[in-house]
Design a binder for these strands. Sequence first.
DNA 1: CGACCTCTGGCAGTCGCTGCCAGGTTGGCG
DNA 2: CGCCAACCTGGCAGCGACTGCCAGAGGTCG
Lengths: 203, 203
Amino acid sequence: MKREEAKTTTRASATLWDRTRQLASQEILETALRLFTEQGYDETTIAQIAREAGVSQRTLFRYFGSKEDLLGGDQDRFGRVLAGAISEQPAETGVWDALHAGIAAVLSLHDNSEQALQRFRLLHNTASLRAGWLEKRLRLQEELLPLVEARMDAAAGAADARARAVIATAFACLDAASMTWVANDGQSNIMDLYDECLAAVRG
Amino acid sequence: MKREEAKTTTRASATLWDRTRQLASQEILETALRLFTEQGYDETTIAQIAREAGVSQRTLFRYFGSKEDLLGGDQDRFGRVLAGAISEQPAETGVWDALHAGIAAVLSLHDNSEQALQRFRLLHNTASLRAGWLEKRLRLQEELLPLVEARMDAAAGAADARARAVIATAFACLDAASMTWVANDGQSNIMDLYDECLAAVRG
DNA sequence: CGACCTCTGGCAGTCGCTGCCAGGTTGGCG
DNA sequence: CGCCAACCTGGCAGCGACTGCCAGAGGTCG
């Protein structure tokens, strides 16, 4: 928060600090992902990642606040993209269409890469990871609340509850879709699955 | 699994072992709940609970496998009740009505007590607890899959995904309902809120 | 009563994570 | 160039949840 006042807007990262930082961060992340997929999340210790990445545990925790962040660190970005895409929709767009657009925007961030499948597989197969993931997403849902609420008719009393239910339902369908997507080894199209799930729910 | 072959069906629990067990378990649970509500979940250590309950940490972990289980231990029972209520519904009952009945059955287990509100409040306000709670519930959802799938028309291809979406949506509405129920200090009726949320989702 | 089984407590150790403190590197300045 | 300040790193000690192990106290039953 001190150096930012300068001209650090350029991505070239003038200072050496930033360059080494990014390099170390990348090295840690790649090592972690490799070990996770090789031997599983729970079976991989922070000590091992740090050792093989050539940094101390202390430094690793400085870059990534927790073990979960090594896999779910991008979640914040996804949240921002989602919120952005939703709020960019014209005001007359309905809730469901807006959510559809938002989810499509998020998925377009990483659909082709094989790496996404690996991460998803890890996520769906590791209980301890799912827990943290769901928790973070719940916070995201809360942030989305005002955005969604604005697009719903404020008819009944519990507008909060209804908006929450709508958001959670959208994510529920996305979950179901991504789960079968993983089960199919990434063959099918997530967005189509999402639409199908939503159709099944909304009759 | 050894002593059960005898006549332990009686709730009087013949042996002294069982009586002391139950007593200790109860003591631990009450202490934990008291401390949690007094000073918060994260601020309460296992050591403190064990000390004030008059047992060793080792014994505490033998009764409750984890810290979370001190609050969410009943979840398995809820799951069983839910599954039971759903499968007891007549075959021609639709999915949504069956789920409605199941949720009603679960809620009727503890709606009057003030203790339920305390637990819910703790759950909704403690991130680390929510994570574990959601994870366990996800497993419950998976168990409910065949029950729900049987009540859906097996039309399209991804029957799995659609059933999952329906279950998750029901829970999403229950979440939204219980959240506003907590926010209202237990004034409103959860089941009514659930219906309203579901209506908002299903249009 | 004595053999047997169960339950208990304590100890050591793992793993994720944090605070603190001594370094070494880098950047900016005179 | 020299020097100070800012920054980053590694290591250590420590906490809290959790587990395996082992000795011992207590109930149970022939």
